[in-house]
Design a protein around this nucleic acid. Structure first.
Lengths: 214, 214, 214, 214
DNA sequence: TATGAATGAGTATTCATTCAT
DNA sequence: AATGAATGAATACTCATTCAT
């Protein structure tokens, strides 16, 4: 009780992240449409109306979840990529590792499945996510692939399409976990999965020796 | 049995599949929750109440859609695999081609996204789908991979996990198409995509020359 | 039970007017915004959802009330005016008498006050009412005034403004009854009120003898 | 007491009228129910909670607005009438002119419509308004009419009812302005309107020459 | 069989009011 | 006195399901 800020204030500052955490959990668990804001509020320990003091509506809440949770990782990865020198395949591994740590192993891991499931019904959200997450993520992979192809580290392929093929298993890993996990034997070991994916890619993307020499 | 059966009877017998077709389209387009049974009925040319003569409720209709949808193609592919001799990579290409023709290019293409989106809400349906579609699909890929590894055509890897990595981009192609397609530049060219996927796999799975010789 | 139409059908045909009557009562009693559709429905003896089978939403219900109740009287009066020959003051008396019988002495009498009270908050409704009721009512009075001025029956005055002055006491009579009626001694005797209004108008509008002769 | 009192104190004492002014504007603009107390507070430059230090609740605020609004003008007109000698029609014109200046051309002009719209919901307020404003206003007009009839300046008519007929267009002018003004061509020119009203009255009320002589 | 009229549970959002600071 | 964070009651509208015809 010495010099702590008043309780009211302390709570006010903590509210947004408490609300975002509760919203993330419920969105991931039940989907966007099926999540009741009253449940979000009560999980965060406040009343329904309080939520509206911080977020204008359900969509704004969702966007905030994405904004706070996912975009920072994209930004981090953009910085990593900008500084990186050397093997482009190594870069992709580093980006993946960071993404896995910050997203794949956290509560945010449920977001890709959430987006896939709700995109059609909430085009605004889909567009927001597409522009702020997907597009930027694709750009990261794309530039690594492009530079690798130019340097001879990778074979020459259609870059835009290759991006999607490269990303797909990574997304699918999470989508799987948050959809079909009901079925017992569907337990994938993520680290093994990612390792095999990258292993296949290493061989699959590799330029011919001739090209590499050049 | 000379001419076609009387119209009314034909109609009556055709009802279930007409309803399923209408339901598939709408479920795929809007998702389960957002699909109105009235719309399903009117697209099938009947009144709302009629639907309930054939399916107990919305959930039963959904299950019927899924169950009718995909299994026949699995059966076909199982026959193809049983007869196949020679390169296991070729076999995988053949299975994929058949699957693409029968599923990927038809209205059933929307089912994977639908299952992913709704699995959590319909655990027993998810289990059904898992056992009858996913497991059998995985088994097909798995035996091709296994035989390929044994023959030296493929490198040795953890088979179960590799199955998932191999399948993931194929599923993701469809999931993508039925979720994020709202966003302009997300136009993937499926044939190119699949070709690159198989191309990466060909190189990625290939056994070392040494092993192959053995 | 001889040849009566089935109960269901009979009720279906009666619904709209039952709903409109209930809506009129409640709108007039509580105002548009404060009227709960659930109350309208239950006063009409149906459930909330049933209302939506007949009227798309609250505003549509309101417009229907006006359409069914008020506009026909306007139409009648337009027909009366079209056929009328002779004194324009007499015409105004006839129009007023009809309006008083069909509106002023029925449940629709509450509508002017309703519109005045809610117009600002529901501009769509206001516009609808203005165009379909007020404008046409003003036109009726306006053409009587104009012809009367041309024939010398009335003095020459600014017609558009005179219309409003002539109509005002008539509207105010109803507005008064549905607002300040709470106060005991505010009991106006409508027939006397209207008679005095017309009496004042008769003298007030009268052309000079000179003009009349012309 | 030389200079103005300290700012803070002046502020405090000015609060109530600042709040009433803000409330009047908003009540008139949006109606009672649609006015948000937060908007009233912020227009008056205080926080929401502050409002409750001065007025117990929304209803109390509304009552205060009405009570402060109009009575002073009634008092003025009562004084004018008490002193007046000569033509009773002239007196009515003078009273109207004063009322128009002090009410019709100020923010108070919105009060009649406000009272009409809300009287049903606030019966005791309506009674207050009736007794303190309407009744006293009617009495002013009534005594002018009565004396005019006695002197032969006006025809003999039912005084109580004539009062209402005479007042109606004046009230309606303001009611109109604050309700249906949304609709384009409903632009009334107030001065013309009032002039025509008084003009009609002058002729309408006039006693027969015979009577006048007596 | 087939219809479609009727039902009523379920939810995002607003805002008057309270009260800890 | 003044603030503004927190509360929770209140309501339009949708749609799966039922059942009289």
């Amino acid at each position: 009780m010495s010099s702590a800020p008043p309780l009211r204030k302390r709570r006010k500052e903590a509210r947004p992240s408490e609300l975002l955490a509760a919203a993330l959990e419920l969105f991931v668990e039940k989907g966007f449409a099926a999540t009741r804001l009253e449940d979000v509020a009560s999980r965060a320990g406040v009343a329904k109306g309080t939520l509206y003091l911080y977020y204008e509506n359900k969509e704004a809440l969702f966007k905030a979840v994405i904004q706070e949770g996912v975009i920072p990782v994209i930004v981090e990865n953009e910085a990593i990529a900008a500084q990186h020198r050397g093997s482009n395949f190594d870069l992709m591994q580093i980006l993946l590792a960071n993404w896995w740590t910050k997203i794949g192993q956290t509560a945010y891991a449920g977001i890709p499945k959430l987006m896939v499931a709700e995109a059609r019904n909430f085009p605004d959200l889909a567009r927001f996510y597409y522009q702020n997450v997907i597009n930027r993520g694709r750009a990261l992979v794309g530039s690594a692939l492009l530079r690798g192809m130019e340097s001879g580290e990778f074979r020459k392929m259609d870059v835009e399409t290759t991006i999607d093929v490269v990303i797909a298993p990574i997304l699918m890993l999470l989508i799987w976990r948050y959809s079909m996990n009901c079925c017992e034997n569907s337990e994938v070991h993520p680290e093994t999965y990612l390792q095999i994916h990258m292993d296949l890619l290493r061989h699959g993307l590799r330029g011919t020796e001739k090209e590499t020499r050049v």
